[in-house]
Design a protein around this nucleic acid. Structure first.
Length: 350
DNA sequence: GAGACGTGGCG
DNA sequence: TCGCCAAGTCT
């Protein structure tokens, strides 16, 4: 083992001890050696935020969440709208809705304690194969394979797996399990992800400074950058729509909360039309609407969107008080709508 | 199993 | 400007 796959774990942990990136949710190898344990709540929160999201984007959100809600009980007691507002801008809003569901299960049914195994963790809302393994390994030392996009890339290169993803997922998980050490599985997982994020990158991998260069078969074969293979992407269609920004004489703004299901579910935004090839105008009230000269362009995971923004002054509706409206509480698309509205020629009050 | 689901950074 | 991609999950 020591000269085979076990050597990879030892080599990587040695590298991690001197190269681990500092993150607000992470216990350094030094502190860990002195007995400090990761807080399962913070591990869980950070891992959910990190789903499909970069470390740079997560940092400030994590700080604000943990400052405002220091433990799972506090988060479970939060208002839905406050959590959605704090999550605004981070994307994939189902994560925020599931975060609250999960916090309420843990605080309400589990005495505030997270389950300690990957199998049990995965039963909770918003916790899938990756997140359950990450929490179990990092917070509870379970020697389970933690496989995210970084690990898929590192492992596919180490062993020259040329089966395209997502088909290769099972094989990559099995290979990851074979190199996951019984000792320090959490540090090993984080080391693999750090390696993938900083050295074994999708393009231009820095093989010259990689601690695993001697073990990497793809590097030896000169095919590292071609792995992992992936099925080709589908083309994104472009959809269009209308958004409506209404304001009264006091500067209060008409906002609505979107239904929990679907795109931007549970978030706050401006009223609008459907989004399609030929959207139907849908002003929230009869009024003197003017069109902003600035169109909003935004790209979601599966389509491009172009919105035409209309604005008006009206007293015809109850609105969100100016003092309660912060553009930062809106998802990015709606912040763009707000910005475009500032460029419009606003009609005079009725 | 394939599609829905955000956003920002980078080449 | 534009496609790729990031510590995925749910249906």
């Amino acid at each position: 083992m020591r000269d085979g796959k076990g050597a990879i774990g030892e080599t990587l942990l040695t590298w991690y001890d001197s190269h681990a990136r500092v993150m607000p949710w992470r216990v350094s190898p030094t502190d860990r050696a002195e007995g400090e344990r990761p807080d399962p709540y913070r591990v869980w929160l950070s891992e959910v935020m990190l789903q499909q999201t970069t470390v740079a984007a997560v940092r400030d959100y994590f700080r604000r969440f943990t400052e405002r809600w220091p433990d799972v009980g506090a988060l479970a007691a939060a208002e839905d709208g406050d959590v959605m507002a704090e999550w605004a801008g981070l994307g994939y809003y189902a994560r925020a809705r599931n975060l609250l569901k999960c916090a309420r299960v843990v605080a309400g049914d589990l005495n505030g304690r997270f389950p300690e195994t990957a199998a049990e963790l995965q039963k909770l809302p918003g916790i899938g194969p990756y997140t359950s393994a990450a929490i179990a390994a990092i917070a509870y030392d379970e020697p389970v394979a933690v496989v995210d996009g970084n690990v898929e890339r590192v492992v596919s290169r180490l062993f020259s797996v040329d089966t395209p993803l997502p088909g290769a997922k099972t094989e990559l998980t099995e290979l990851t399990a074979q190199i996951t050490p019984e000792d320090r599985p959490g540090d090993f997982a984080q080391a693999m992800m750090d390696l993938g994020a900083t050295i074994c990158t999708p393009r231009n991998p820095a093989c010259g400074i990689c601690p695993l260069i001697d073990a990497c078969t793809a590097r030896a074969a000169g095919i590292a950058e071609t792995l992992p293979r992936k099925a080709p992407k589908k083309e994104k269609p472009t959809r269009r729509g209308f958004a409506y920004v209404a304001m009264n004489g006091q500067g209060d703004v008409l906002l609505e909360r979107r239904p929990d299901k679907g795109l931007l579910g549970g978030t706050l935004g401006f009223p609008g039309s459907d989004w399609s090839d030929a959207p139907t105008p849908a002003p929230p009230m009869q009024a003197d609407w003017t069109t902003s000269p600035v169109e909003v362009r935004h790209t979601f995971t599966h389509f491009h969107l172009i919105l035409q923004v209309h604005v008006t002054r009206t007293e015809a509706r109850a609105m969100t008080p100016r003092a309660d409206f912060r553009p930062g509480d809106l998802p990015t698309l709606m912040r763009k709508v707000w910005d475009a509205a500032q460029s419009a020629e606003w009609p005079q009050p009725e």
